[in-house]
Design a protein around this nucleic acid. Sequence first.
DNA 1: GTTGAGCGTT
Length: 220
Amino acid sequence: MSRYSRPPNTSLYVRNVPDGTRPDEMRSLFGKYGPIVDVYIPLDHFTRLPRGFAYVQFEDVRDAEDAMYGLDRSRFYGRELEIQFAEGDRKTPSQMRAKERRDSPPSRRHGHGGRYDDRDRRDRRRSRSPYERERRRSRSRSPYYSSSSRRSRSRSNERRRSGGGSGTSRRRKSYSRSRSRSRSPRARGREPSPRSRSPSPQYRSRSHTPRSRSRSPEAH
DNA sequence: GTTGAGCGTT
């Protein structure tokens, strides 16, 4: 969220996270050391699978430190977690994309300098690669990302009444009556602009069509 | 519409 809200680094970089680990669990595990701001498990953009590491952002750096020292090299689902302080900021999709492009495996590169190899390939090869397959399979939002804060606060939109509704019915009546009787002088909101007061189309046409004049006499 | 594509290997 706030990129600027990064005092030092309250985020921990957790490596060697078992597959299927949910942010929930991470939160639970790390939450013992302090309030967790956010837990994020980066997923592969294509496969939508966890990449094997996670980020746990604490509220307080001390807690983060504590957690780091407490959970580092600890066993989690039979795996040893490797924790260290996060360094880089979360990359924005564009950056990631650029990176991906740059980091593209040269093995498939034709050397031609393909502009849109990916697209072409995807179109051509159909979705033969597991990437595409997976991607198609779970195209919806990843179930992994989870933000502790900023939850769906859409509790309910009840009470949609806005504005002081005092004497609404009365007003309505008045309006109705008014409408029946005579419209307001300014009721119409969409009145041609004053500038639109151009000469009659006829006149304009005539004026602009010299031929018309010649032809006019022959009209009738 | 606040950006969920943030470090994986010395």
